[in-house]
Computed example of a mutant assay.
Amino acid sequence: MSEELTYDAAYQELQEIAEEIEQETVSVDLLSEKVKRAAELIAFCQQKLRATETEVNNIIKQLDNNK
């Protein structure tokens, strides 16, 4: 993931991989590669969500402190 990946792009790619696997259009030769990429995308999305949650909580705390 050397390029600047966004949450939306990662989620979209993850959906495409899941669909390919569900429809059994992934060859056995590529299956492990697809699953590995899916795991990377899941980890990326989880990290983004945690970072966003932390940032939003900090903003809410700042707003509460300014009251």
Score class of each variant (00 low, 15 high):
L41H: 02
K36L: 08
V56H: 11
A38F: 00
T52S: 13
L31M: 05
I17V: 01
Q62H: 06
R37H: 04
E16W: 11
Q46L: 10
L49S: 13
D64L: 07
Q23N: 15
N65G: 12
L41A: 01
F44E: 01
E19W: 06
E33T: 05
Q46P: 06
L30M: 15
L5K: 02
K48T: 07
Q23L: 15
L41F: 00
A51G: 13
E19N: 11
C45F: 06
E24L: 04
K48A: 11
I60E: 08
E53H: 15
A9K: 04
A10Q: 00
E16C: 10
C45D: 06
T6K: 00
N66C: 08
K36M: 08
E24N: 14
Q12S: 11
A39K: 10
Q47S: 13
N57P: 06
K36C: 07
A43D: 08
A9P: 03
L31E: 02
K61W: 03
S27N: 04
L5C: 02
E24R: 12
V28H: 06
Q62D: 13
A51S: 12
E24T: 05
M1G: 15
V35H: 02
E33H: 05
S2H: 15
S32H: 06
Q23V: 08
K61G: 05
A51L: 14
T25N: 03
K67L: 11
I59F: 13
T6A: 00
L31G: 00
E55L: 06
E55S: 13
E4V: 09
E55T: 12
D64V: 09
I21P: 01
A39P: 04
S27A: 03
I42L: 13
K34W: 00
A10P: 00
K36Q: 10
A18M: 10
L41N: 02
E20A: 12
E20Q: 12
N58Y: 14
Q23T: 15
D8P: 04
D64R: 09
V26T: 09
T6H: 00
Q23C: 10
N58G: 14
E20I: 05
K61Q: 05
E16A: 10
E13R: 07
E22W: 07
T25S: 10
E4K: 07
L31R: 02
K34L: 01
A39S: 08
S32A: 07
Q15A: 03
N66V: 11
S2L: 13
Q12M: 07
R37Y: 02
A38Q: 02
E16H: 13
Q62T: 12
I60R: 06
K48W: 08
D8R: 10
A18L: 15
E13Q: 06
R50G: 14
N58F: 05
V35E: 05
